[in-house]
Amino acid sequence: MVTGVVLLVSLPALVAALPATDASVSAPELRAQALASAGVAHSGYAQAAGGLSLPVGQQLTPVADLLSDRTSMRTWYRSPQDWRVDVVSPTGETGVYRDSAGVWTWEYEDAVVTRAGTPPLALPTAPDLLPTALGWRLLSEADEAELSRAPAARVAGRDALGLRLVPAADASSIARVDVWVDSATGLPLRVRVVGEGGSDADPALDTAFLDVDLADPGAAASRFTPPPARDLRTGPDEQLYEAARTGLRDGVVLPPTLAGLARRDVPGTPASVGAYGRGVTVLVAVPLPDRAADGLRRALRRSPDAVADPAGVRLSAGPLGLMLVDGSTGPLLLTGTVDGEALAGAAAELTGGGR
């Protein structure tokens, strides 16, 4: 009897320790399988661990916390427009529900409901750190030349085939991205992002399923009906988009390339906001109102790692760089997965210091 109990208790650990079975699948084929898995229904429990410390102003504190802490999530996924993610913390849970029109966020402890659409400008949230969402995003624009196979691994008790992405852009601050894909369905089960100078033991971000079920969780699992007489708010992304759409100020003209990266065409994005690069190497330029820029400037200058020069003040936190540029038309925020040299070069281009 005792022996049987011991075996039952130790069985999950024994299964996780089994060697992974690899398969002779090429890197481009594995990428295609991963991207095609967006239609695979599933549910599970995942954790994301961020290793970035960002000294930012009050407006970006939730993003800084997300990228520097451990985030625990339960997910029920039926399609790209039908899913639910519960973010679990020591003080309670926050439910995020996606439907065809947008996203509901239900903060149970504070009885607050937030409704947000899908604007082109959006700050990262906890569901973006799921291994599925992050894996699909980072692999979506990868070139074949940037991809290679990595060793297989056991993730959430399943065989996962390894795929490595090494960005080709010289400006990139990311050394590599490793994605482990379920061998049966192509579903990304784990993603590890390593910055320049980092290591597997000290990644910038590591997110993985600890448990996953590949059955359809059913429509009831992701359905949300707002409780009556509750505090209903508008999502911060709508506020961000509206501020940018109406124009924070006149005279902001962004170039077609910045730091050697081509400008991206993001439908619906205001002309005063520029997104540059491809895949995992992205640089964004956003004009800021003076009040927001003052708070961010103070936060950056408090960091001992900040670098100040006539163009502005910049800081690198792992592979994520931030720079507040003092332009002729007002302050500009540069941020993205580029190194400090690229940030300084972009600032020189924008202020005319490079000419």
Rank of each mutant, 00 (worst) to 15 (best):
G279Y: 08
Y241S: 05
P255M: 00
T246D: 13
L283K: 14
Y241N: 11
P255S: 01
R233E: 10
G235R: 00
L288F: 02
P267N: 03
A292G: 01
A292D: 13
V266G: 04
R263G: 03
G274H: 06
L248H: 09
P289F: 14
R249G: 11
G247I: 09
D231A: 10
G268Q: 03
V266L: 10
P256G: 03
A243P: 03
L261D: 02
A292M: 10
P236S: 06
L261E: 11
G268S: 00
P287Y: 12
A243M: 13
R233N: 03
A271C: 01
D237K: 00
D290L: 11
A293N: 13
A244Y: 08
V284N: 12
A285G: 05
P270M: 06
Y241P: 00
L232D: 04
V280L: 04
Y276H: 07
D290G: 13
T269W: 00
R263D: 03
T281S: 14
G274T: 09
A259T: 07
D237L: 04
P289L: 09
L232R: 02
Y276D: 05
R245L: 11
Q239G: 11
V273I: 14
T234A: 05
L248M: 15
G268A: 03
T246I: 04
V273P: 07
T246C: 08
T257N: 03
E242G: 02
T281I: 10
Y276R: 07
P287Q: 10
Y241I: 00
P236R: 05
D294P: 02
A271P: 05
G279W: 11
L258D: 13
D294Y: 06
L248E: 15
G279D: 06
T281E: 08
T281M: 10
Y241D: 08
E238N: 01
E238R: 01
R291W: 08
Q239M: 11
Q239S: 15
T234F: 02
G251L: 09
L232E: 05
